[in-house]
């Protein structure tokens, strides 16, 4: 006896999700906005910092950024090299242009123009100016490739979701001894709603590594401290690999984020 296997076409249940679909999620299942977590987190951080740094006011605050949580002291992060920084800035500019409905065709040219209009001249713009033809061509190709990945994956971005880009946050803790700084590449949703609707997106041009989860948690923590309302989810998208990681924000995640911050501070205190 023999059985003939029929030729089959595999079909997915649904087309692959876009970044925006993941960020917005299912509207009906959103939890009530969490407005009670911020004071507890602040107390946890203040107590932890007091134990680590003591009560004396420092001349210079210890400043933490998302990048402080990304890598361990024993690793060198390639994304901090100058060409990678420029690439990251230009992709962020591309995201900003896409967020207002602009179709970015010439990824390098348009984002470079926008960046220059914003910052004028600085060390990094000078770096781009001084590239020779080969290096410049490599950068153009690199930025274009990353931009294509972003464009294909982002999905439609309705202005009813209130997209805001490159949002800065700054939190002083322990009387100014510690400063948490952050920049959210894209935020959608509002803090004025009764249900949690704010979703955060960090776009990176590096592959997502072990530090990515810590960074997503850090974004959620700083946003919670800044607005007193916990966001719905925190996500990270890599234009290098097309990977999207997304975490729903709850009390446990925020507590872990606060502990991550204290962990980095204790490493800094130990090495000082």
């Amino acid at each position: 006896m023999w059985r003939q296997t029929l030729r089959m076409t595999s079909l997915l249940d649904a087309s692959p999700l876009s970044v925006m679909e993941v960020l917005r999620g299912e509207r009906t299942t959103r939890p009530v906005a969490n407005a009670s977590a911020a004071p507890g987190l602040r107390a946890l951080l203040e107590d932890g910092i007091f134990e680590l740094l003591g009560p004396a006011l420092r001349d210079e605050p210890v400043t933490l950024r998302a990048s402080s949580l990304q890598s361990t002291p024993h690793t060198y992060d390639l994304s901090r090299s100058t060409p990678a920084q420029v690439r990251g800035i230009l992709i962020t500019q591309a995201l900003r242009l896409m967020s207002v409905g602009l179709d970015v065709d010439d990824a390098f040219g348009e984002t470079l123009l926008a960046w220059r209009a914003d910052v004028g001249t600085n060390e990094l713009t000078n770096f781009v100016d001084q590239l020779d033809a080969d290096e410049r061509a490599r950068l153009v190709t690199d930025v274009t490739a990353h931009c294509v990945t972003l464009k294909r994956s982002l999905g439609p971005l309705s202005n009813r979701w209130l997209p805001r880009t490159s949002l800065r946050a700054y939190q002083r803790l322990a009387g100014g001894n510690v400063v948490l700084r952050d920049v959210i590449d894209l935020m959608v949703g509002t803090t004025t709603s009764d249900v949690a609707s704010v979703a955060l997106l960090d776009v990176t041009t590096s592959p997502l590594g072990e530090g990515a989860e810590r960074v997503m948690r850090y974004h959620a923590l700083v946003q919670t401290l800044r607005t007193s309302i916990a966001p719905l989810r925190s996500s990270m998208f890599s234009t290098a690999t097309g990977d999207l990681w997304s975490l729903d924000v709850d009390d446990e995640l925020l507590t872990r984020a606060a502990l991550d911050v204290l962990d980095v501070l204790s490493q800094l205190a130990a090495s000082a």
Partner: peptide
């Protein structure tokens, strides 16, 4: 593109 950034 600069107008887009102003808009953002």
């Amino acid at each position: 593109s600069v107008l887009g950034l102003v808009s953002a």
